[in-house]
């Protein structure tokens, strides 16, 4: 067997996930390992950075460098790593609560900063790890233990927010089709700048009705738009459970502030002389 060929299994760590059987996140793990094999990345050149939540457990299951940090803070940690070590392939991953709620400010600024990395948001429209409280993407009338009559709060539209805030690649995928997701991940990683993939990933424990998503997905109803405005219109008019790549922008990625006309330490000492 050719040594250079890498298989998806080469990117599994061997740690067995604690996700519930039936959880959509297994499909994301499968897709991620397929994408890495397809890109033929060396595992040591990849870093998966996450926050807290069910989805954020993913780094430990991937055979790559991982940072399982704080709730909501995957994106700044990932940005710091990518800016400091630009040769690495950096993936940030988390759930809808982690990325859109507690990490919402970082999400906006990651989009506008446009560091060359890929974010995977596993959206199950619920907080799974804390037992089913409503998340920013939960429907207003969806009953939970916390709000038996629903939240009456409008769900957050992560795709549109990403587009408006300046993400350079925006897509939605469904975890029930890991091969399609893998291809979208491959494109996202290859695309320069900040890429956002929102993955519809059912929570079979707290939202068992999401198992039905597999029959409701509008596969590839989204296609790359010609402008951010067209992409926004496409997201707004497409069926709710649409997948596909809706935006591939051409903003140059941020690699740091560049040359700031400074002097090196040895040369700056003169400036202190009175």
């Amino acid at each position: 067997m050719n040594e250079a060929m890498r298989k998806p299994n080469d990117f599994k760590s061997g740690v067995k996930p604690i996700w519930c059987p039936g959880c959509g996140d297994y499909g994301v793990l499968s897709a991620l390992t397929k994408a890495f094999a397809r890109l033929n990345c060396a595992p040591e050149k990849i870093a998966v950075v996450s926050g807290i939540g069910c989805a954020a457990r993913i780094p430990a299951y991937v055979n790559a460098y991982g940072l399982h940090g704080l709730h909501g803070r995957a994106l700044p940690a990932a940005a710091g790593l990518k800016l400091a070590r630009p040769e690495l392939t950096v993936i940030a991953a988390g759930g809808d609560g982690d990325i859109y709620s507690i990490g919402g400010n970082h999400f906006i600024h990651a989009c506008r900063r446009n560091v060359d990395m890929t974010l995977i948001v596993m959206d199950n429209r619920i907080y799974g790890m804390t037992k089913g409280q409503p998340s920013p993407t939960t429907e207003p009338d969806y009953p939970t233990h916390l709000y038996p009559a629903g939240t009456h709060v409008q769900p957050l539209d992560g795709m549109s927010l990403a587009l408006v805030a300046g993400a350079n690649f925006v897509a939605r995928a469904f975890t029930g089709d890991p091969n399609d997701l893998a291809e979208i991940i491959v494109e996202a990683i290859r695309h320069p700048g900040f890429s956002v993939i929102e993955v519809l990933s059912p929570c079979v424990t707290f939202r068992p009705e999401e198992r039905e998503w597999k029959h409701q997905i509008a596969r590839h109803a989204l296609t790359p738009a010609g402008s951010v405005a067209e992409a926004l219109a496409a997201v707004a008019s497409a069926p709710e459970l649409s997948t596909g790549i809706v935006w591939k922008g051409n903003r140059p990625p941020y690699t740091g502030p560049g040359d700031q006309a400074g002097k090196r330490v040895q040369d700056v000492l003169d400036s202190f002389v009175a």
Binding site: P21, Y26, A37, R38, N40, G176, V204, R211
Partner: peptide, 22 residues
């Protein structure tokens, strides 16, 4: 693994519907 992984229509014919697991 160098080829497009996508299958027409829907997921890979070998894929098991793991969302149905319990």
């Amino acid at each position: 693994y160098m080829r497009d992984l996508r299958w027409l229509g829907e997921s890979c014919p070998g894929a098991v519907d793991i969302l149905s697991a319990h």
